[in-house]
Design a protein around this nucleic acid. Structure first.
Length: 275
DNA sequence: GAAGGCCTGGAA
DNA sequence: TTCCAGGCCTTC
């Protein structure tokens, strides 16, 4: 489940490998993952050079030459692998939906997605013409000022966890980093945002930034499917304190970590450390 | 504002 | 066979 740190990690790796390279060929195996009709997609991107790769929320944005942008959202199980001539493994990958080919030196970027919740699309490289779902994204949490963050959430009546998951309010958070930041800030996921003390909301922003930066430093969390561009795993899952630890003992106080469901989604928290 | 359904496929 | 995952949409 790639969230901000996982997508950030991949974007950095993609930049290192693909920046300046030209797309020589495309193989579309599953047209339904494309937002653009396959014929048009191919015609648009073959021959273009990759200027740079950025991240916005959980989206990977590839800036191509001549003002075209390629957008990739990995959904739950999306993966990107880069293989050069030498690094190509002997085994075949299942669930591969799209391959971009590069020449001199030869290489390929493979898009694989078991659940097929991810998707890929094109848009002009002009912010006002970005895809609707990108334009609707809220601010990047790492760019948000602590005080502004607190003031914003102080006016909201919904449960804090639902708000953190809402991409139109804050971009890039999913279950892992919302649970982990709430733990660090000592806030229960079901608390109404407007009932949380202003200082506590400021602390939430600090916790959030901390946990995101730590996760980026460890190359993201590899729970099930997330992998780096070269197929290796991230390591931040080793440092999760509550996510996926329902029933285990809290590392801080020894209480049993509880799991609750919030609109069909699991939230884990420590009943003693989080109020 | 909250809950439930849908998409898909792997694990239990 | 049932459950679950994340994002988005619809319904209440």
């Amino acid at each position: 489940m790639p969230e901000l740190p996982e997508v950030e990690t991949l974007s950095v790796q993609l930049n290192r490998v693909l920046r300046g390279r030209r797309i020589s060929k495309v193989q579309i195996r599953t047209p339904s993952i494309l937002e653009t009709p396959p014929g048009e997609f191919e015609a648009q991107i073959v021959g273009r050079q990759i200027a740079r790769i950025k991240r916005r929320g959980k989206f990977i944005q590839m800036e191509l030459s001549e003002n075209l942008a390629l957008w990739c959202h990995l959904g739950m199980t999306g993966q990107l692998f880069f293989q050069s001539e030498e690094s190509r493994p002997a085994f075949l990958l299942s669930h591969v939906h799209l391959i971009l080919f590069f020449d001199n030196p030869p290489g390929r970027l493979i898009y694989r997605d078991i659940r097929r919740f991810g998707h890929i699309g094109l848009s002009p490289a002009l912010e006002s013409q970005f895809p609707e779902e990108v334009r609707r994204l809220g601010p990047e949490p790492l760019d948000w000022k602590e005080e502004d963050f607190a003031l914003f959430f102080k006016t909201r009546r919904a449960r804090i966890k639902s708000l953190l998951l809402n991409q139109t309010l804050v971009a890039g958070l999913g279950n892992i980093y919302s649970d982990e930041s709430l733990f660090r800030a000592g806030i229960r996921p079901l608390r109404r945002a407007d009932k949380i003390a202003h200082d506590r909301l400021r602390r939430l922003h600090r916790s959030l930034c901390e946990v995101l930066k730590e996760a980026i430093r460890w190359g993201g969390s590899s729970i099930d499917d997330y992998r780096h561009l070269d197929g290796t795993t991230g390591r931040f899952q080793e440092f999760h304190r509550v996510y996926g630890r329902g029933g285990e003992k809290c590392q801080t106080c020894g209480s049993s970590i509880r799991s609750v469901r919030l609109s069909g989604r699991t939230s884990s928290f420590c009943p003693r450390c989080q109020k």
